[in-house]
Design a protein around this nucleic acid. Structure first.
Length: 934
RNA sequence: GCGCGGUUAGUUCAGUUGGUUAGAACGCUUCCUUGACAUGGAAGAGGUCACAGGUUCGAAUCCUGUAUCGCGCACCA
């Protein structure tokens, strides 16, 4: 039984995933009636957007989670990885609306019910793309527990959560300035309005003053005296001036004190507005006078509140000027901006445009400029929730890896603002609130429609009236109004923010609010792995929800991994056209290669280009071939086994002792890295263990041993090869699940005790240190010497251009008798690896003729270079070496001679320095001896 | 404006609590198709660790400041 000559990732990967899933290996072992070891290990997947396709960020995220899951599964824990997708309200609705648009239809043409049918149809046909792709990656999720935020159970959880919060007085409804996307025509939360710096204009506009005693608002120019016949305000959004209801100055601003309480004329609409005084105004900025538009700016809204100003909404939900905007009615907001500026200029009221850099909110789904907009929405009062999360953190219930994200998280919690959760779309969980048409006067106005002029008092009322008259919030659809017994009830048309369902994910996916077995067994979960941009959207909210509804944090460890970026440094995204499709990489190089490359690079943000995946591909190929070599070498072996005890009474060769020792050492190190989410470091360690130690040295050393006449040595080497290689596969399995399974199964067939092996490498157990049984400092030191000797010879070969086929003679001159004894034990190996015809190991040596050496602290390696060596060149080289070494000695000597160093440095450091000094001196002697012989 | 992170080889990055002559991958140079692997092997060149101070016997590592790049947050119209 052996492996194919060529490693074919594609074939292997398709085959194994199917096998694993169909046999139920991904399910918790307790589902199979097994008694697992220790605490369960549970991860919930950050649910990807149902409209999404797998991008590199997902690939990295899922790779990390799968490594953690497979690692813990191998350790014997009851592992559960719950997969699923969220319904992505706005994004999904957009996709379906776009589809309808092609047929020249809108959602309004279909009506709510028919439209939702369309969305479900789309979901059923296309919604599994991303989960299919996750399978290609090798993600060992328990698909039997897959959830969707719109499925029945999760919808029940959403309703439960909403009603519970309402009952606890943490949900309110009110008129506020929210972020409004005119394209999606819905409110957004603060997090969904991504601020981008934009170079815009700061427009200075003259507002005429109403002269003393004049009642008429027909004030004619010219306006020349600022502060007398006019004032100048500055704005970035001139179109909002249509809704101005005041201008404000700082109460202590001496320039304008006389204006306070006076009136100015709002140009274009020729409305009188008041000059008010408010601390908010920064006298240093612009002219020190601010126009106040309570319905279109959060600050102005607050100011309007303080001064009981009228709120005039001048925009329609789709971003056009409404009937309050006079002649501008019907114009798009940006079109209106241009026209208004033009009109102002014609009237001599436009002063100038300054270039101005400011942050403008953009809809995170469609990138449209968000409009601060006054409308009636549902909110969650966040502060009480945040306080619980803060307290949990103080108690050490949550920890971020790496730790620096803690601060980001805490800062956000401390400055938390209420969460606008209602969305004016149809796809999502409809708010479980019903309006009694009889009791509720305030129902019936379409959301976001040109709101009649709400007064500040009304807002205040709306905010604080809880529960509201005429609104019934309930778990079950109410039949009648509890107050008036009226039957005319209409459910609130709004749906909830998608994140309102995602934040329940860690327990809703386990069955909550039903007290299921899963919930009992698997909550709280273990780790959360996600990207930094999701900390606010999801992580923080999940923690708050966990505490609020379950009374316990949903997970304690939060691993924040790097962002995947294109080589240019920009975030990888489809819209920028700089993305690399993970599926293409899988197709070309295999999922194992993709996973390994990504994880190895993920110590921080991952900058990708296609070539970077070659690391993983080459590594997979190396693993394949090394194992193939092992299988070929053990062809005749009848007693291949993974049993540690087989080596107990065996006198192992030095290289075998060494490789066993190296594996033991590195296993512990890899485990340590994995335990603190140092996956990149773990992967790098493994890479070098496999490539450098196992392939470059052990396999090369094993070759002569296998060809040896000594039957016992032959057999022993075969056994060690098998044993070590099988462990290597297990160490690699979490990182490269497919290739390791394929090879491992071949190993299993080859082993003498195959019956004792589990059915899959997934359950083969994670290699643990054999009580340091294999730790072997002596072997490590000896192989170090061997590597020096071979390296020294190889260097001389290359330096003097000696063909590899030229068998030459070398002499190793040991400086100590002890070294000589050691070197003699691996004489044969050095001969083979150095391609020598002859090797002498001696204590004393008198150089004859043209010879050159490489010197080490323990020995010198000479080779004969008759007719090749240029004595002058060699002399120069040696002189340079001597100079370098002298300098080095001087440095150490100074250090050691320093009384403070001797006094303060730890003992072992001092010892090390002294050793170093001794070694350096030996080296110097070697060089000097060589030089004098010329 | 506030906060966070980076600045180490030509490039991309590692570098645990300060302690070998600062490492890797890719690229580059030279040589090698030797029975696991050319997706390979051997060897080599290449770095005053952004800058300036400070703490220390000792600093890439800790502190202060500067420069520069990136990210996040924020109501300066």
């Amino acid at each position: 039984m052996t492996l194919d000559t060529r490693y074919n990732a594609k074939d292997i990967e398709a085959r194994w995933y199917k096998e694993w899933e169909s046999k139920g290996y991904f399910r918790p072992q307790s589902d199979h009636g097994k008694q697992p070891a220790g605490k369960p290990y549970v991860i919930v997947i950050p649910p990807p957007n149902v409209t999404g396709i797998l991008h590199m960020g997902h690939a990295l995220n899922s790779s990390i989670q799968d490594i953690l899951i497979r690692w813990n599964r191998m350790k014997g824990a009851d592992t559960l990885w719950v997969p699923g997708v969220d319904h992505a309200g706005i994004a999904t609705q957009n996709v379906v609306e776009k589809k309808l648009a092609k047929e020249k239809k809108t959602r309004w043409d279909l009506g709510r019910e028919a439209f939702l049918k369309e969305v479900w149809k789309w979901k059923n046909e296309n919604g599994s793309t991303i989960t299919r792709q996750l399978r290609r990656l090798g993600s060992s999720c328990d698909w039997t527990r897959e959830r969707f935020t719109m499925d029945e159970g999760l919808s029940k959880a959403v309703r439960e959560a909403f009603v519970t919060l309402y009952e606890r007085g943490l949900i309110y409804r009110g008129n506020y300035i929210i972020n409004w996307c005119p394209r999606c025509q819905t409110a957004l939360s603060d997090e969904e309005a991504a601020h981008k710096d934009m170079q815009g204009g700061l427009y200075h506009i003259k507002y005429p003053c109403l002269p003393e005693g004049r009642q008429s608002i027909d004030v004619k120019g010219p306006y020349e005296k600022m502060g007398e016949d006019h004032i100048v305000v500055a704005t970035t959004r001139p179109e909002t001036m249509l809704g101005d209801t005041a201008v404000a100055v700082h109460p202590n601003d001496s320039r304008y004190k006389h204006l306070i309480g006076k009136k100015v004329i709002l140009p274009l609409l020729n409305r009188e507005i008041l000059v008010i005084a408010d601390d908010f105004v920064d006298p240093e900025f612009g002219t020190g006078i601010v126009k106040v538009t309570p319905a279109h700016d959060p600050n102005d809204f607050a100011m309007g509140h303080r001064h009981k100003l009228e709120q005039i909404n001048v925009m329609t939900p789709d971003g056009k000027i409404n009937e309050n905007g006079g002649v501008y009615k019907g114009m798009d907001r940006f079109e209106a901006r241009k026209k208004i500026l033009k009109d102002l200029e014609e009237q001599g009221l436009f002063v100038r445009r300054d270039s101005h850099l400011h942050a403008v909110g953009h809809c995170y789904r469609c990138d449209t400029v968000v409009e601060p907009y006054l409308s009636k929405q549902w909110f969650v009062k966040m502060q009480p929730l945040a306080e619980k999360a803060l307290k949990a953190h103080e108690q050490g219930d949550t920890a971020f890896y790496p730790d620096r994200w803690t601060k980001v998280y805490l800062n956000w919690l401390r400055g938390i603002r209420d969460w606008c959760i209602s969305r004016q779309i149809w796809w999502g969980h409809q708010i479980p609130a019903w309006h009694c048409m009889k009791c509720s006067a305030d129902y019936g106005e379409p959301h976001g429609a040109a709101a009649p002029r709400n007064t500040a008092n009304e807002v205040q009322d709306a905010v604080h009236r809880t529960p509201y008259a005429g609104i019934i919030v309930a778990r079950e659809t109410p039949k009648e109004c509890p107050k008036c017994k009226g039957k005319d009830l209409v459910q609130d048309p709004d749906v909830l923010d998608t994140w309102f369902s995602s934040w329940l994910w860690p327990f809703s996916t386990l069955g909550w609010p039903t007290k299921t077995e899963d919930l009992k067994k698997f909550y709280p979960t273990s780790d959360l792995v996600t990207a930094p941009e999701i900390i606010f959207f999801w992580v923080a909210r999940m923690i708050m929800a966990g505490l609020e509804f379950m009374g316990e944090v949903p997970f304690t460890k939060i691993n924040i991994h790097g962002t995947v970026r294109a080589a240019s440094g920009l975030k990888m995204s489809k819209s920028l056209g700089n993305s690399i499709d993970p599926l293409e990489v899988i197709e070309e190089m295999g999922a194992d290669a993709l996973r390994y490359s990504l994880v190895m690079l993920s110590a921080q943000d991952v900058y990708l280009s296609r070539e970077k995946f070659e690391v993983g591909r080459n590594f997979a190929n190396k693993v394949w071939n090394a194992c193939r070599f092992v299988l070929i070498q053990i062809e005749g072996l009848e007693t291949a086994s993974t049993d540690v005890r087989q080596f107990e009474k065996m006198e192992l060769s030095l290289p075998s002792r060494w490789i066993l020792s190296r594996f033991e050492e590195k296993t512990a190190e890899i485990e340590r890295h994995l335990a603190q989410f140092g996956l990149a470091q773990a992967a790098t360690e493994l890479y070098h263990l496999v490539w450098d130690d196992f392939c470059d040295w052990y396999i090369e050393l094993a070759k002569p041993m296998i060809l040896s006449e000594d039957r016992a040595l032959r057999l022993q080497t075969q056994k060690v090869l098998f044993f070590v290689c099988e462990r290597m596969l297990r160490l690699l399995h979490p990182f490269m699940p497919f290739i390791t399974e394929e090879i491992w199964q071949t190993f299993k067939q080859k082993s003498a005790d195959a019956k004792a092996w589990p059915e899959t490498i997934m359950f083969a157990g994670w290699p643990h240190e054999e009580k340091k049984k294999f730790r072997d400092a002596e072997a490590q030191k000896a192989i170090g010497l061997l590597q020096d000797a071979v390296g020294g010879i190889r260097d001389l070969r290359v330096r003097f251009q000696i063909a590899p086929t030229d068998k030459l003679t070398a002499v190793i001159v040991c400086k100590e008798q002890e070294t000589l004894v050691t070197v003699r034990t691996f004489e044969r190996e050095v001969k083979v690896l150095g391609r020598l015809a002859e090797l002498q190991c001696v204590r004393e040596f008198q150089k004859k003729g043209a010879m050159a050496a490489n010197s080490f602290a323990a020995f010198d390696v000479f080779i004969s270079l008759e007719g090749i060596l240029d004595p002058e060149e060699e002399k120069k080289r040696l002189e340079k070496k001597i100079q370098e070494t002298e300098q080095w000695i001087e440095t150490i000597r100074k250090k050691v001679a320093n009384p403070s160093f001797a006094e303060k440095a730890p003992k072992d450091i001092l010892e090390k320095e002294k050793e170093k000094l001794a070694d350096a001196k030996k080296l110097l002697v070697s060089y000097q001896t060589q030089l004098t012989s010329f």
